[in-house]
Amino acid sequence: MEKFKTFNGVVCPLDRSNVDTDAIIPKQFLKSIKRSGFGPNLFDEWRYLDHGEPGMDNSNRAVNPDFVLNDPRYRGAQILLARENFGCGSSREHAPWALADYGFRVILAPSFADIFFNNCFKNGILPIVLEDKVIDDLFRMATVDKALEMRVDLSQQLLTAGGWQRNFEVDAFRMHCLLNGLDDIGLTLQRIDEIRAYEARRRVEAPWLFGNRS
Protein backbone atom coordinates (compact mmCIF):
# COMPACT_ATOMS: atom_id res chain seq x y z
CA MET A 1 0.00 0.00 0.00
CA GLU A 2 1.22 3.50 -0.76
CA LYS A 3 2.02 5.83 2.11
CA PHE A 4 -0.60 8.46 2.82
CA LYS A 5 1.01 11.89 2.41
CA THR A 6 -0.29 15.38 3.10
CA PHE A 7 -2.02 16.81 0.03
CA ASN A 8 -4.27 19.59 -1.27
CA GLY A 9 -7.39 18.48 -3.10
CA VAL A 10 -10.71 19.65 -4.46
CA VAL A 11 -13.82 18.81 -2.43
CA CYS A 12 -16.66 17.19 -4.38
CA PRO A 13 -20.04 17.55 -2.58
CA LEU A 14 -22.36 14.52 -2.96
CA ASP A 15 -25.54 15.68 -1.28
CA ARG A 16 -27.36 12.41 -0.59
CA SER A 17 -27.71 10.34 2.55
CA ASN A 18 -27.49 6.53 2.73
CA VAL A 19 -25.36 6.21 -0.40
CA ASP A 20 -25.01 2.45 -0.67
CA THR A 21 -22.32 0.29 -2.22
CA ASP A 22 -24.63 -0.64 -5.11
CA ALA A 23 -24.77 3.05 -6.01
CA ILE A 24 -21.02 3.47 -5.59
CA ILE A 25 -20.29 0.62 -7.98
CA PRO A 26 -23.26 -1.13 -9.58
CA LYS A 27 -23.16 -4.88 -9.35
CA GLN A 28 -22.59 -5.61 -13.03
CA PHE A 29 -19.05 -4.34 -12.50
CA LEU A 30 -18.34 -6.73 -9.63
CA LYS A 31 -17.69 -9.60 -11.91
CA SER A 32 -14.13 -8.59 -12.56
CA ILE A 33 -11.57 -10.77 -10.83
CA LYS A 34 -9.10 -7.88 -10.55
CA ARG A 35 -8.80 -5.02 -8.09
CA SER A 36 -8.26 -2.12 -10.44
CA GLY A 37 -10.10 -0.41 -13.28
CA PHE A 38 -13.33 0.36 -11.43
CA GLY A 39 -12.93 4.18 -11.40
CA PRO A 40 -14.65 4.92 -14.73
CA ASN A 41 -17.78 3.18 -13.42
CA LEU A 42 -17.87 4.84 -10.00
CA PHE A 43 -21.50 5.95 -9.38
CA ASP A 44 -22.25 4.62 -12.87
CA GLU A 45 -26.06 4.84 -12.68
CA TRP A 46 -25.99 8.46 -11.56
CA ARG A 47 -23.08 9.51 -13.66
CA TYR A 48 -24.19 8.34 -17.10
CA LEU A 49 -27.57 8.56 -18.81
CA ASP A 50 -27.41 5.10 -20.35
CA HIS A 51 -27.05 1.74 -18.67
CA GLY A 52 -23.42 0.73 -18.15
CA GLU A 53 -21.99 -2.73 -18.67
CA PRO A 54 -18.44 -3.98 -18.18
CA GLY A 55 -16.28 -3.60 -21.26
CA MET A 56 -18.10 -0.54 -22.63
CA ASP A 57 -16.09 2.41 -23.86
CA ASN A 58 -17.08 5.00 -21.27
CA SER A 59 -15.74 7.91 -23.30
CA ASN A 60 -18.59 7.40 -25.80
CA ARG A 61 -21.36 7.36 -23.22
CA ALA A 62 -23.79 10.21 -22.53
CA VAL A 63 -22.96 11.73 -19.16
CA ASN A 64 -25.58 13.09 -16.78
CA PRO A 65 -24.76 16.83 -16.63
CA ASP A 66 -26.65 17.19 -13.34
CA PHE A 67 -24.48 14.73 -11.45
CA VAL A 68 -21.84 16.35 -9.34
CA LEU A 69 -18.92 14.26 -10.61
CA ASN A 70 -19.60 15.65 -14.08
CA ASP A 71 -19.53 19.26 -12.90
CA PRO A 72 -16.34 20.82 -14.31
CA ARG A 73 -15.74 22.56 -10.97
CA TYR A 74 -15.07 19.22 -9.33
CA ARG A 75 -12.90 17.61 -11.96
CA GLY A 76 -10.02 15.72 -10.43
CA ALA A 77 -11.51 15.96 -6.93
CA GLN A 78 -9.69 13.89 -4.32
CA ILE A 79 -11.96 14.62 -1.38
CA LEU A 80 -15.56 13.42 -1.34
CA LEU A 81 -18.00 15.25 0.91
CA ALA A 82 -20.93 13.02 1.76
CA ARG A 83 -23.96 12.68 4.00
CA GLU A 84 -24.87 10.24 6.74
CA ASN A 85 -24.48 6.46 6.58
CA PHE A 86 -22.20 6.62 3.56
CA GLY A 87 -21.21 3.21 2.17
CA CYS A 88 -24.11 1.22 3.58
CA GLY A 89 -25.13 -2.02 1.96
CA SER A 90 -22.89 -4.86 0.95
CA SER A 91 -19.41 -5.60 2.23
CA ARG A 92 -17.97 -5.50 -1.25
CA GLU A 93 -14.56 -3.93 -1.34
CA HIS A 94 -15.19 -2.93 -4.92
CA ALA A 95 -16.72 0.26 -3.49
CA PRO A 96 -13.47 1.60 -1.99
CA TRP A 97 -11.55 0.20 -4.97
CA ALA A 98 -13.75 2.25 -7.30
CA LEU A 99 -13.44 5.38 -5.17
CA ALA A 100 -9.67 4.99 -4.94
CA ASP A 101 -9.31 4.16 -8.62
CA TYR A 102 -11.23 7.33 -9.48
CA GLY A 103 -8.81 9.28 -7.33
CA PHE A 104 -10.64 9.89 -4.06
CA ARG A 105 -8.36 9.67 -1.05
CA VAL A 106 -10.50 11.21 1.66
CA ILE A 107 -14.22 10.97 2.41
CA LEU A 108 -15.88 13.38 4.82
CA ALA A 109 -19.26 12.40 6.24
CA PRO A 110 -21.27 12.62 9.46
CA SER A 111 -21.35 8.81 9.63
CA PHE A 112 -20.22 5.75 7.68
CA ALA A 113 -21.40 2.17 7.49
CA ASP A 114 -19.02 -0.01 9.54
CA ILE A 115 -17.72 -2.46 6.95
CA PHE A 116 -17.18 0.23 4.36
CA PHE A 117 -15.36 2.37 6.93
CA ASN A 118 -12.92 -0.48 7.65
CA ASN A 119 -12.48 -1.31 3.99
CA CYS A 120 -11.44 2.27 3.25
CA PHE A 121 -8.36 2.08 5.46
CA LYS A 122 -7.28 -1.15 3.83
CA ASN A 123 -7.26 0.60 0.49
CA GLY A 124 -5.48 3.78 1.39
CA ILE A 125 -8.63 5.90 1.72
CA LEU A 126 -9.08 8.02 4.82
CA PRO A 127 -12.73 8.25 5.98
CA ILE A 128 -13.28 11.15 8.37
CA VAL A 129 -16.31 11.57 10.58
CA LEU A 130 -17.32 15.19 11.25
CA GLU A 131 -20.30 16.59 13.13
CA ASP A 132 -23.46 17.30 11.16
CA LYS A 133 -23.05 21.01 11.58
CA VAL A 134 -19.51 20.97 10.20
CA ILE A 135 -20.63 18.87 7.25
CA ASP A 136 -23.46 21.34 6.59
CA ASP A 137 -20.93 24.20 6.62
CA LEU A 138 -18.69 22.35 4.21
CA PHE A 139 -21.57 21.71 1.82
CA ARG A 140 -22.23 25.45 1.79
CA MET A 141 -18.54 26.19 1.20
CA ALA A 142 -18.19 23.55 -1.52
CA THR A 143 -21.21 24.52 -3.59
CA VAL A 144 -20.28 28.11 -4.45
CA ASP A 145 -18.97 29.07 -7.90
CA LYS A 146 -15.38 28.26 -7.20
CA ALA A 147 -14.50 24.76 -6.03
CA LEU A 148 -13.34 24.36 -2.45
CA GLU A 149 -9.74 23.27 -2.04
CA MET A 150 -8.75 21.58 1.18
CA ARG A 151 -5.47 20.50 2.69
CA VAL A 152 -5.47 17.15 4.45
CA ASP A 153 -2.68 16.54 6.95
CA LEU A 154 -3.09 13.12 8.50
CA SER A 155 -0.14 13.22 10.87
CA GLN A 156 -1.45 16.46 12.39
CA GLN A 157 -5.07 15.26 12.04
CA LEU A 158 -5.89 18.61 10.53
CA LEU A 159 -8.10 19.84 7.67
CA THR A 160 -7.49 23.34 6.32
CA ALA A 161 -9.37 25.29 3.65
CA GLY A 162 -8.47 28.96 3.38
CA GLY A 163 -9.14 30.39 6.82
CA TRP A 164 -11.19 27.37 7.87
CA GLN A 165 -9.55 24.73 10.07
CA ARG A 166 -10.69 21.62 11.79
CA ASN A 167 -9.06 18.75 13.69
CA PHE A 168 -10.35 15.25 13.17
CA GLU A 169 -10.22 11.96 15.02
CA VAL A 170 -8.58 8.87 13.67
CA ASP A 171 -7.72 5.57 15.28
CA ALA A 172 -4.00 5.57 16.21
CA PHE A 173 -3.34 2.15 14.72
CA ARG A 174 -5.14 2.99 11.48
CA MET A 175 -3.20 6.23 11.22
CA HIS A 176 0.09 4.42 11.75
CA CYS A 177 -0.75 1.91 9.00
CA LEU A 178 -1.85 4.61 6.54
CA LEU A 179 1.13 6.84 7.15
CA ASN A 180 3.56 3.96 6.74
CA GLY A 181 1.69 2.14 3.99
CA LEU A 182 1.59 -1.02 6.12
CA ASP A 183 -0.24 -4.16 5.05
CA ASP A 184 -2.32 -5.85 7.76
CA ILE A 185 -1.30 -9.38 6.83
CA GLY A 186 2.38 -8.66 7.26
CA LEU A 187 1.66 -7.12 10.66
CA THR A 188 -0.39 -10.09 11.80
CA LEU A 189 2.17 -12.63 10.63
CA GLN A 190 4.59 -11.08 13.12
CA ARG A 191 2.31 -12.71 15.71
CA ILE A 192 2.64 -16.28 14.46
CA ASP A 193 3.67 -17.60 17.86
CA GLU A 194 0.67 -16.12 19.57
CA ILE A 195 -1.70 -17.52 16.96
CA ARG A 196 -0.15 -20.97 17.34
CA ALA A 197 -0.40 -20.76 21.12
CA TYR A 198 -4.06 -19.80 20.88
CA GLU A 199 -4.75 -22.73 18.55
CA ALA A 200 -2.99 -25.17 20.85
CA ARG A 201 -5.12 -23.98 23.76
CA ARG A 202 -8.33 -24.20 21.75
CA ARG A 203 -7.57 -27.69 20.53
CA VAL A 204 -7.77 -28.74 24.15
CA GLU A 205 -10.75 -26.56 25.19
CA ALA A 206 -12.85 -26.98 22.05
CA PRO A 207 -11.45 -29.89 20.04
CA TRP A 208 -14.60 -30.18 17.91
CA LEU A 209 -13.57 -26.99 16.13
CA PHE A 210 -10.55 -28.62 14.55
CA GLY A 211 -10.17 -30.95 11.66
CA ASN A 212 -13.31 -33.04 11.95
CA ARG A 213 -13.67 -32.54 8.20
CA SER A 214 -11.75 -30.94 5.46
Partner: peptide, 20 residues
Protein backbone atom coordinates in the same frame (compact mmCIF):
# COMPACT_ATOMS: atom_id res chain seq x y z
CA UNK B 1 -20.05 -11.04 10.34
CA UNK B 2 -19.24 -9.93 6.83
CA UNK B 3 -15.78 -8.84 5.77
CA UNK B 4 -14.21 -7.18 2.76
CA UNK B 5 -11.90 -8.83 0.28
CA UNK B 6 -8.71 -7.60 2.00
CA UNK B 7 -9.98 -9.28 5.14
CA UNK B 8 -10.81 -12.44 3.20
CA UNK B 9 -7.16 -12.54 2.23
CA UNK B 10 -6.17 -11.80 5.82
CA UNK B 11 -8.24 -14.69 7.16
CA UNK B 12 -6.93 -17.05 4.51
CA UNK B 13 -3.36 -16.12 5.34
CA UNK B 14 -3.52 -15.85 9.13
CA UNK B 15 -6.80 -17.41 10.35
CA UNK B 16 -7.25 -14.14 12.24
CA UNK B 17 -8.74 -10.70 11.81
CA UNK B 18 -7.83 -7.34 13.25
CA UNK B 19 -10.96 -6.01 14.91
CA UNK B 20 -12.22 -3.66 17.56
Amino acid sequence: FGIGTSEVEHVLATQCLIQK
